[in-house]
């Protein structure tokens, strides 16, 4: 069968796989965003113990392969605790923790890129640290972080394909299952690759637009 014929024949399965990929990505990124913000804030804290907690988390995420993290969460933890974890839940936990670590670093970098005078100006007006952080520092930090944030979204979207290994039926796994029936590896992997490519291109385009909208100017003092 030709590629167009294969697309038509497997369209609904491929689409379902893609939908799962997008769903995993979105849910994981939402959780990862909260983790990243939390641990990013910890990592710029004045308290050494809080910084240490963030450091350990980030180092573990960065120091181990995603695949090992997935296995640890899907097989390791349930075995140790005697519980059962379905693949989708394990996948979301893995991706959230993983992306959360990288996002924590992005948040830390973004916060640290803002001139110290901004925090001092806010505090000198009587604002507590929390308000100064949320109203003055973070809005500026997020602007500088936008490219890195979008980059992490794309990475996480691509990382979902690794979760095919624990049996989640996202796009990659769907491709494998179809090939197991029709043996048309070249055509099917082409289709799958093009589907990833298109969705990532769309994301890139949207993000470029957001980036342009968010810039209020080049200089910051």
């Amino acid at each position: 069968m030709s590629i167009p014929e294969l697309v038509v024949q497997n369209w609904s399965r491929l689409l379902a796989g893609l939908a799962m990929t997008v769903e995993l990505t979105i849910i994981s990124l939402i959780i990862a965003g909260m983790l990243g913000l939390l641990f990013g804030l910890l990592s710029v804290s004045k308290k050494k113990s809080l910084r240490a907690i963030a450091l350990v988390y980030v180092d573990i995420v960065r120091g181990t392969p995603l695949l090992v993290q997935a296995f640890f969460i899907y097989f390791g933890i349930p075995a140790a605790l005697g519980i059962r974890l379905d693949a989708n839940t394990a996948g979301i936990i893995t991706l959230s923790l993983n992306a959360g670590g990288y996002l924590a670093e992005i948040f830390r970098g973004g916060i640290e890129s803002i001139n110290k005078g901004q925090m001092e100006a806010a505090r000198s007006l009587g604002l507590p640290y929390s308000l100064a952080m949320t109203k003055v520092i973070l809005p500026q930090a997020v602007r500088t972080m936008t490219p890195a944030l979008i980059n992490q979204c794309i990475i996480t979207l691509k990382d979902t394909s690794i979760l095919s290994i624990i049996g989640i039926q996202e796009l990659t796994q769907t491709g494998r299952l179809i090939i197991a029936n029709n043996y048309q590896a070249f055509e099917m992997w082409t289709i799958v690759a093009v589907m990833y490519f298109i969705i990532i291109m769309i994301l890139t385009k949207i993000s470029k637009r957001i980036e342009r909208k968010m810039s209020y100017g080049k200089s910051e003092n």
């Binding site: 005078g117 001092e120 000198s124 009587g126 604002l127 809005p139 602007r143 003092n221």
Partner: peptide
């Protein structure tokens, strides 16, 4: 301290205005 600072205005060498706010917002912000 946060309370006391409300009564102590400070002006910095580098101005330190909030770049993501308009002039009016800078002033009414706190």
């Amino acid at each position: 301290i946060n309370k006391y600072r409300q009564n102590i205005g400070m002006v910095f060498q580098q101005f330190n205005l909030f770049p993501h706010m308009t002039v009016l917002e800078n002033i009414s912000f706190a």
